[in-house]
Design a protein around this nucleic acid. Structure first.
Lengths: 229, 229
DNA sequence: TCAGCCTTGTGTGTATACATTGAAGGTGTT
DNA sequence: AACACCTTCAATGTATACACACAAGGCTGA
């Protein structure tokens, strides 16, 4: 694989899983030595991360963007517009096969979630597969690109609700309804079920996010400036 | 300004106004000599254009992407989702001042359009200002970024309806309704009026696009491969 | 004559050297 | 003591040299 792509994927993964915290300053030379490539591919990776909105130019160098409470609300507003549309389109155009499979696996999700932490990977795999199936069924490359971008940011927020089994169980039920609406080719229901799901998700994310923000604030109240990785 | 940005803006403008036709092969060395900068900023510009979806890697070099009939439909599906949401949010959150101004100017639009070609610039300026005002009033940076991206592609399509005065007059009326819905803080009406506007726009774009595609096809039927700029 | 291989050339990928900008800190003056 | 200017340095912006990969064309052998 190209060094530029490797650098991009590595940095993106580190930002999404939180190892590179918001506010972290990413400098070209520093990252190039750390990742073992020259500045050129690192530059390329940073530009792409900037286009994704995961880093932002800040005077000197690029800093990992923060996800504020307002950002979460904004992101969910956009997700609602995009995913409701995608679900409606999927309801109109889809092939049954992939959604039948996902439906079966979602019916099994509560059992996965009883296992606690080890079941989370497989569970999120189902959700990701559903997202991909909807995107594919919608058959709209522009919508698909926009969806992938919001999912990128959603991945950063999802970590907040990882440890809320009750919410995850409810979410599985909401996903199931979306799948069944698509299978029934009921575009309006698919769209509204998506709206409901995202509304509940947002409510939960805001609740846990304020705790997380509070914790981070009390942890290092004065540390608002960029910090070096 | 940075050479990379200049290269990006130059290439983007040339793609949007059609001087770089779809299928044109953009090679780094070639463009770097043409634009008078080295390969590095050209590379940066090409990566960014690829992120925008205006060029696509194609074996050797990057080619300017084509806008197919399917693309137009897909783009309008996405626009509807985004712009309807944006109009609804704007109806809820806006300050009256900018929309009052735009409303006045839209009322004057028919007079502009009677002038033919010279009135087109001012007319499109009003439309652009409306887009910006809605984006600003929506107050959602993620939605704003997505909107700017679709507007980029829409600009390529808009050229097709430039020479249809009747359609432009109708569009001005549709825009006016959107503005008045926003001023009335009627989110649902703003959203639906946007839907109506885009539906009519799409219908017109498809009609003129098929003529344009037909013309292009009869003009150079065998010329489907990438051509050098 | 045809097929396969090799050679050559063009174009991108990466590294590095050089230019430039901008910020921070110190010093001098008011 | 405070403000402004200047110096200095570090980090980014740009250019270019080198490495590598792929494709096309020709040559050779069967």
């Amino acid at each position: 694989m190209r060094a530029g792509d490797r650098a991009y994927r590595t940095l993106r993964a580190e930002i999404l899983d939180g190892s590179l915290e918001p506010g972290t300053l990413l400098q070209e030379v520093e990252q190039s030595t750390r990742l073992g490539v020259s500045r050129t591919p690192v530059r390329e990776a940073l530009r792409q991360l900037a286009a994704d909105g995961l880093v932002a130019a800040s005077g000197r160098g690029n800093v990992v963007t923060a996800v504020s409470r307002d950002d979460i609300v904004s992101l969910y507003e956009l997700r609602e517009a995009l995913e409701a549309k995608a679900a409606a389109l999927a309801a109109q155009h889809h092939d049954d096969a992939p959604f039948d499979g996902i439906r079966e696996r979602l019916l099994d999700a509560p059992r996965l979630l009883e296992q606690g932490e080890p079941g989370l990977g497989p569970y999120f795999a189902i959700v990701d597969e559903l997202d991909e199936a909807i995107e594919a069924a919608a058959g709209n490359p522009f919508l698909g690109a926009a969806l992938r971008n919001v999912q990128l940011h959603s991945a950063r927020i999802r970590r907040l609700s990882r440890h809320n089994p009750e919410r995850l169980r409810a979410a599985a039920g909401e996903h199931l309804l979306i799948v069944e609406a698509i299978l029934a080719r009921d575009a309006e229901l698919a769209s509204h079920a998506t709206h409901v799901h995202l509304h509940r998700s947002l409510t939960n994310a805001l609740a846990t996010a304020s705790e997380a923000v509070d914790a981070a604030t009390s942890e290092s109240p004065a540390d608002r400036g960029p910090k070096v990785a």
